[in-house]
Structures are given as structure tokens and as C-alpha cells.
């Protein structure tokens, strides 16, 4: 009984992870400029990874495999924001202009902010 519940929970997590991955991929194609695409990429790198890894953890039970899966998740969650920030910072230094709504300030260096 308990095993069946864990299995179903694990299936739901895996499928949700896959769904969030595809939605993030669609966002990567649909959003208008580089900066908003970063958010879509964030979608595939956070909840997609979290759901799939936790789905697999439920399958693995308490073992060395679970520890390794959680380590993978930890590395992904530590490195993904750093990589995203680095790309964004590089684009900012390269003066890639973001598409912004009218009420937003322009993107400039923090010291030169309006």
C-alpha cells in the first residue's frame, strides 16, 4: 500500500518535471529578448530538475544512490544561478539592450543608476 503511494507520487513528480522542462523550452523560444529568456531557462533548471531528482529519490529509497542524486541536485542548484548570473552580467557588460515596459528604469551600471 505504502509502496503504491510512493510509486504514484514518484510518477507524478517525474511527469511534472518533464512538463516543466517542456514549458521552459517553449518559453525559451517564445519570449521576446535575451533577458526574459533567462527566466524561461531558469524554469527548466530549477523546478524541472528538482521534480525529476526527487521523483528518482523516491524510487531509490534510502541508499548511496539517493545521496548521489541529492548531491547532483545540490550542485545543479548551486551552479545554475551562478551560470545564469554570469551570462546576464556578460550581456550587460556587452551592452545588450533589454526590452522593457514603459514604467521601468533603463538598464545601466548600479553606480550610474537614475
Amino acid at each position: 500500500m505504502l509502496e503504491a503511494i510512493i510509486n504514484i507520487l514518484s510518477w507524478l513528480l517525474l511527469l511534472a518535471g518533464g512538463a516543466f522542462g517542456i514549458i521552459g523550452g517553449i518559453g525559451l523560444l517564445r519570449f521576446p529578448d535575451f533577458y526574459s529568456r533567462m527566466h524561461a531557462a531558469g524554469l527548466t533548471e530549477t523546478l524541472c530538475a528538482i521534480c525529476i531528482i526527487f521523483g528518482l529519490v523516491l524510487q531509490a529509497g534510502i541508499s548511496l544512490l539517493t545521496l548521489k542524486l541529492l548531491l547532483i541536485l545540490l550542485f545543479l542548484l548551486f551552479t545554475a544561478p551562478t551560470a545564469t548570473h554570469a551570462v546576464a552580467r556578460a550581456a550587460m557588460i556587452d551592452e545588450v539592450e533589454p526590452v522593457l515596459s514603459e514604467d521601468s528604469p533603463r538598464l545601466v551600471d548600479y553606480e550610474d543608476r537614475p
Binding site: L15, G18, G21, G25, L29, A41, C48, V87
Partner: peptide, 30 residues
Amino acid sequence: TTLAVFATMGLALVRALKGPSIYDRILAVN
């Protein structure tokens, strides 16, 4: 789930090919 992740990779690959800026490509490769 694997197929869904493959689909995501395909979509990312389309973005990597389309660009337009080099940063879009790096993001997609990431």
C-alpha cells in the same frame, strides 16, 4: 519523462541555432 527532457533539449537546440545574440546561444547550451 526522458522523452520530455529530450524535447526540452530539442527546443534549447533550436534557440541555440537561431541565436540571435551569442548570449542566447550560451544560455541554450547551458
